[in-house]
Design a protein around this nucleic acid. Structure first.
Length: 890
RNA sequence: AGGCACGUACGUCAAUGGUAGACGGCUUCCCUUACAAGGAAGAGGUUGGGGGUUCGAGUCCCUCCGUGCCUACCA
C-alpha cells in the first residue's frame, strides 16, 4: 500500500463531501430507528450576498461538531440550511451593478428590478453554499430554504395577517430613523451610534415684548427653522418668569411659546432647549405632550423644504446649517460656538447620517410578545444561554422593548400584504384575491413597502419546518435543540424568534442558545470589511487544511480570541501526526483487521491501559460536547491521540507489531492497534471529518456502522460514537503504566543530563520492595529497555548498583540507578539530586503548613486531609531515600 | 452616563474553591526503520495593584488601574 509521508488535506477534501451528500448521509431519514431521539439545529441563514467569514466558519464548525456527534450517537439529526434574502444589502448590491450600466432601479421599474435581483441570485448569489461544502458542513441540503421562497413568503403573509387581525400590527404616523441615502426607514437596531467631533452652537432667541433673549444650545442649528417651542425645566429659577412668554423665532416670522417640561436638564448647555418635534425623537415626544405643531423643514432627501423659508428651500441640510449660523451671526444672535463631541446615528449599511423624520409606517406592538418571552424565562429558564451571562443581556433588552418599525421603503423583500381601496380603506389579506373579496372591489393598490428582513428571520425555526401546516418535520424537529450564533444578533434575531415561536407554535423555538466568541485580528481589532483586516477562512483552509482550521475554531467556543495562525499550524501538525500514526498501523497491518471485540479481551498491561485511556477519553468527550465545552473536548482528543496513543502505545506495541515472523501474537497486536485507531478516528470525526474518513476508508476489516444506520454505505460518519464503557476503565492498569512511564522518563532524564548519546546503550538497575511492583516492571522489561535505550534492565528488591551511578527515587518506594563508570561527575550528580530534594522539600513545607493549621484539619473534608497526609508521607519516603542516595555518593 | 465581560509564562489561550496547564516560541541533544509538520530532555508564573470572606482564592466579595463590548433621549 502506498501512503505518502505527509498528509495532503486537499487530496482528502476532494471527494468525500460529494459522496456523503449524494448518499443522503446528512438527511435525518438515513436513520432507520423509529425510536431514535431527535437533535435539530436551524442554521442562522447567511445573507444571499454574503461570503464566508471567520464568524461563519466558527459557528458552522460548532454546529457541525454537534450534529455529527449526535448523528453518530444514533440521534435522528437534522441541521437545516438556508439563506436570507437580506433586503437592503441585496438591493444595494444589484443597484450598484445597475449603476455601472448607467441605470438606476427607477429606470427599470419595480417589477423588472425585482426580476433582476432574482436573476442575480440565480447567477451569483449564495456563494456561501459552495464554501459551506468545503467546510464539511453536514447540512441537509434537501431541506434548503430561502426566506423569499414562495413557501416562506406565504408564512410571512399568514403571520402578518394574524397579527394585524389581533391589532398587534398597525399603521401609524410617527418619528422614525430615515436614511436619506437608501431612502428607507430603519429600525432602532439598524442604526449605529457613533461618536462624532462636532460643535455646540449657542443661539439667542429674542423674547416678544421684551429686550431679553433666551439662549438655546444645539448641535443642529438648521433644525431651528422647524422649532415650535423652547423648553426649560419647571424647577429652574433662572427662567421661571419666562415660562408662558413668547419667543420671536429668528429667520422666520413665527412666534413660539416657552414652556416647562421635566425632561429638560438644567445642568446642560443653557438649561433651555429648542424644540423641533418634526426632526428629533425627544422633541417629538415633548411635542405630543404639549400639543405642539410639527413643522417639517427637512425632506426625505435631507434637503430643506418650502416651510424652511425662502432663503433655505432646496438647500442640503449641511448648507442650511452654515447659512443659519451665518445669519445668526449677522443678526448678532450667535452667542458662541464650542467644540463638542457627541454621538450621531448612522445607517448601519451606508453610514449616512440618519435623519429623524415623521413618516407613515407599519409597526408591531411588542408588549404581548415580550411578555410571552419573559414569562418563559421566568417560568422555565428558557432558552438557556451559554455562556449564562447573556441571559441578562436578553432579558434586560426585552424589558425595555419598544414597538418595532417593520416597513421598509425597498423593492426587494416581502411586500406588505395590505391593499388600499380607492376611498383609502386598508385591507390586510393573505392574497390579492382574498383582499378583493374582503373589499368587494378589484380596484386595489398594494402597499408599496416591504417588510424588514428580520420579520421573516423571526419565523425561521418554524417557517422552515412547514408551519402553519402540522407537518411531520414540524412535529419532529420543533423545538430545535440549540441555536448557535454571534452575540450581535441576540436582539435582532434570537429574541424575536422566541417571541414569534411562542406566539405562533405555542412553544419555544430552541432549548439552548450558544453564543460564540468573536475572532479578532492579531492586534485585537474586530475584523471588518472596511478595515480590510479580515482573515479569509478559505485561505486558511488552503494553507493548513479544513480539519486543522476546524479544530482551531472548535476550541475557541465562546471566548473572544485574537486570531493566531500558529495555532492552526500546530493542528495541521496534529493532522499530520494522525496521518502518520495511521500510516504506521497500515504499513504493519498484513494479516490483521479491525475487530471491535478484541478491546474487551486485552491481557497485556499496555493494552489494558490504552483501552482504559480510550474509554475515559470517550466519556470525557461525550460529556464535554454535550456541555458545550469544546475547548476541553479538543484538548482531550489531542492528548489522547498524541501522548497516549502515539508517544506511548504505538511505541510499547511496536516490537510485537513489527515482528518479522508471522505469529498469532503479531496478528493480535496488529488487530488491536488497528481497532484502537479505528475507535480514535471515530472520536475525532466530528471535529476532523475529512482526514478521519480518508483514513477510515483504508482500514481493513469489519467496520460496523451504528445500528440505526445498518445497510448504509460504509462511512465513519455513521459509525457509533464511542460511549466510553465504565467496565473497560482500568485504574490499576493506569497507575501501573504510570510507574513504567516514570521509569522510562527518569532514565531519559538521566541520559540527557549526563549527555549520553542516543546510540549508547546503558544498563538500568531498578529496585522495589513491593513484589507486585516488581512483577509489573518485569512484565515491561523489554519495553523499558527499548524505550530507555538500555542493553540490560535488572529488577531486584534492593538497589544493588556501583557507586558510580546516576540515581533516581521513584513513586511507591522504588529506586533506579544507571551505572556510569567513568562518565559520572560526582559533584554534578550530587547537585542534581539536591535540586530534586529541594523541590520535594518545598512541596512538603507547603503541605506541612496546611496540616499544621488546626482549622484545616477540623474544617476541611476528611478526604482532603487524608490526601495531604498521604502525599506528605510519600514525599517523606522519597526524600529520605534521596538523602540516602546523596550520602552514598560521598 | 449606565450595564456586562476581560486582565494568568515571551505570544495565544486553559484551569467544578483544593499541588497553576496546553500549544507556539526559547535552550540542549538527536535525520532512533510512522511522522524533522518528528523524537528526547529542559528553562520560564508573588495569576494587573490593594483589601476582604474562607481551613484554603486565579476562581467568591469590595476597591483601584488597564482593555474591550453592549445599551442610553442629555439638546
Amino acid at each position: 500500500m502506498e501512503i505518502p509521508k505527509q498528509y495532503d488535506p486537499k487530496e482528502a477534501e476532494k471527494n468525500h463531501y460529494e459522496w456523503w451528500e449524494k448518499n443522503g448521509f446528512f438527511a435525518p431519514e438515513i436513520n432507520r430507528d423509529p425510536k431514535a431521539p431527535v437533535f435539530s439545529i436551524v442554521i442562522p441563514p447567511p445573507n444571499v450576498t454574503g461570503s464566508l467569514h471567520m464568524g461563519h466558519a466558527l459557528q458552522h464548525t460548532l454546529m457541525d461538531v454537534m450534529t455529527r456527534h449526535k448523528r453518530m450517537r444514533g440521534y435522528r439529526a437534522l441541521w437545516l440550511p438556508g439563506m436570507d434574502h437580506a433586503g437592503i444589502s441585496t438591493q444595494l448590491m444589484v443597484a450598484r451593478a445597475l449603476k455601472k450600466e448607467g441605470k438606476s432601479r427607477h429606470d427599470l421599474g419595480r417589477e423588472k428590478f425585482v426580476e433582476r435581483v432574482w436573476q442575480w441570485k440565480q447567477e451569483s448569489g449564495g456563494q456561501i453554499t459552495v464554501q459551506m461544502r468545503r467546510e464539511g458542513a453536514s447540512v441537509d441540503w434537501s431541506r434548503d430554504q430561502f426566506t423569499m421562497s414562495e413557501q416562506l413568503s406565504s408564512v410571512v403573509r399568514e403571520v402578518f395577517v394574524r397579527l394585524y387581525d389581533e391589532g398587534m400590527i398597525y399603521r401609524g404616523n410617527r418619528i422614525v430613523n430615515w436614511c436619506p441615502q437608501d431612502q428607507t426607514v430603519l429600525s432602532d437596531l439598524e442604526v449605529d451610534k457613533l461618536p462624532q467631533a462636532g460643535k455646540l452652537y449657542y443661539l439667542q432667541y429674542p423674547i416678544k415684548n421684551s429686550d431679553r433673549r433666551i439662549t438655546v444650545a444645539t448641535t443642529r442649528p438648521e433644525t431651528m427653522l422647524g422649532d415650535t417651542a423652547v423648553a426649560v425645566n419647571p424647577n429652574e429659577e433662572r427662567y421661571r418668569d419666562l415660562v408662558g412668554q413668547t419667543v420671536l423665532l429668528p429667520l422666520t416670522d413665527r412666534e413660539i411659546p416657552i414652556l416647562a417640561d421635566e425632561y429638560v436638564d438644567p445642568e446642560f448647555g443653557t438649561g433651555a432647549v429648542k424644540i423641533t418635534p418634526a426632526h428629533d425623537p425627544n422633541d417629538y415626544e415633548m411635542g405630543l405632550r404639549h400639543n405642539l405643531p410639527q413643522v417639517v423643514v427637512i425632506d426625505p432627501h435631507a434637503k430643506m423644504t418650502a416651510d424652511a423659508g425662502a432663503g433655505f428651500t432646496g438647500l442640503d441640510r449641511y448648507e442650511a446649517r452654515e447659512k443659519v449660523v451665518a445669519d445668526f451671526e449677522a443678526l448678532g444672535l450667535l452667542e458662541k460656538v464650542v467644540d463638542y463631541e457627541f454621538s450621531i446615528s448612522r445607517c448601519e449599511r451606508c453610514k449616512t447620517v440618519i435623519e429623524p423624520l415623521i413618516s407613515t409606517q407599519w409597526f408591531m406592538k411588542m408588549d404581548q410578545l415580550r411578555d410571552l418571552a419573559l414569562d418563559l424565562m421566568a417560568r422555565d429558564q428558557k432558552p438557556r444561554f451559554v455562556p449564562e451571562t447573556y441571559k441578562k443581556v436578553y432579558t434586560d433588552w426585552l424589558e425595555n422593548l419598544r414597538d418595532w418599525t417593520i416597513s421598509r421603503q425597498l423593492w426587494w423583500g416581502h411586500q406588505i400584504p395590505a391593499w388600499y381601496t380607492p376611498d383609502g380603506q386598508v385591507i390586510v389579506a393573505r392574497s390579492k384575491e382574498e383582499a378583493s373579496e374582503k373589499a368587494g372591489t378589484n380596484e386595489l393598490t398594494q402597499d408599496p413597502d416591504v417588510l424588514d428582513t428580520w420579520f421573516s428571520s423571526a419565523l425561521w425555526p418554524f417557517s422552515t419546518l412547514g408551519w402553519p401546516n402540522e407537518t411531520e418535520d414540524l412535529k419532529t424537529f420543533y423545538p430545535t435543540s440549540v441555536l448557535v450564533t454571534a452575540r450581535d444578533i441576540i436582539f435582532l434575531w434570537v429574541s424575536r424568534m422566541v417571541m414569534m415561536g411562542l406566539k405562533f407554535v405555542g412553544e419555544r423555538p430552541f432549548e439552548d442558545v450558544f453564543i460564540t466568541g468573536t475572532i479578532l485580528d492579531a492586534q485585537g481589532q474586530r475584523m471588518s470589511k472596511t478595515k480590510m483586516n479580515g482573515v479569509d477562512p478559505i485561505d486558511v483552509f488552503d494553507k493548513f487544511g479544513v480539519d486543522a482550521t476546524r479544530l482551531t475554531l472548535a476550541q475557541i467556543g465562546s471566548t473572544d480570541i485574537r486570531w493566531n495562525e500558529k495555532q492552526v499550524e500546530s493542528y495541521r501538525n496534529f493532522a499530520n501526526k494522525i496521518w502518520n500514526a495511521a500510516r504506521f498501523c497500515l504499513l504493519n497491518s498484513e494479516g490483521a483487521e479491525v475487530k471491535p471485540e478484541i478491546l474487551e479481551q486485552s491481557s497485556a498491561l499496555h493494552d489494558r491501559w490504552i483501552v482504559s485511556r480510550l474509554n475515559k477519553t470517550a466519556q470525557d468527550l461525550n460529556r464535554a460536547i454535550d456541555a458545550y465545552e469544546f475547548h476541553q473536548a479538543v484538548q482531550s482528543l489531542y492528548h489522547f491521540f498524541w501522548d497516549d496513543f502515539c508517544d506511548w502505545y504505538i511505541e510499547l506495541a511496536k516490537a510485537d507489531v513489527t515482528a518479522e515472523q508471522d505469529s498469532a501474537a503479531r496478528t493480535e497486536a496488529r488487530t488491536r492497534l488497528l481497532t484502537v485507531l479505528e475507535q480514535a478516528l471515530r472520536l475525532l470525526h466530528p471535529f476532523m471529518p475529512y482526514i478521519t474518513e480518508e483514513l477510515w476508508q483504508r482500514l481493513p476489516g469489519d467496520k460496523r456502522l451504528h445500528a440505526a444506520y445498518e445497510g448504509a454505505e460504509p462511512t465513519v460518519m455513521l459509525t457509533a460514537y464511542p460511549e466510553g464503557a465504565a467496565e473497560l476503565i482500568d485504574e490499576a492498569a493506569e497507575s501501573e503504566m504510570q510507574a513504567i512511564i516514570e521509569v522510562i522518563s527518569r532514565v531519559r532524564n538521566i541520559r540527557s543530563e549526563m549527555n549520553i548519546k542516543p546510540g549508547e546503550r546503558i544498563k538500568i538497575v531498578v529496585a522495589s520492595p513491593d513484589e507486585n511492583q516488581r512483577r509489573v516492571f518485569e512484565s515491561a522489561r523489554e519495553q523499558i529497555a527499548r524505550l530507555a535505550r538500555a542493553s540490560e534492565v535488572s529488577i531486584n528488591d534492593r538497589l544493588d548498583a556501583p557507586k558510580a551511578s546516576a540515581r533516581a527515587v521513584l513513586m511507591g518506594g522504588a529506586e533506579l540507578a544507571v551505572p556510569l563508570e567513568g562518565l559520572i561527575d560526582f559533584e554534578q550528580e550530587r547537585r542534581r539530586l539536591q535540586r530534586e530534594q529541594e523541590k520535594l522539600q518545598a512541596e512538603a513545607a507547603k503541605l506541612e503548613a496546611q496540616l499544621g493549621n488546626p482549622n484545616f484539619v477540623s474544617r476541611a473534608p476528611v478526604e482532603r486531609v487524608n490526601e495531604v497526609r498521604e502525599r506528605i508521607a510519600a514525599i517523606a519516603q522519597q526524600s529520605s531515600q534521596l538523602q540516602q542516595t546523596v550520602e552514598n555518593l560521598r
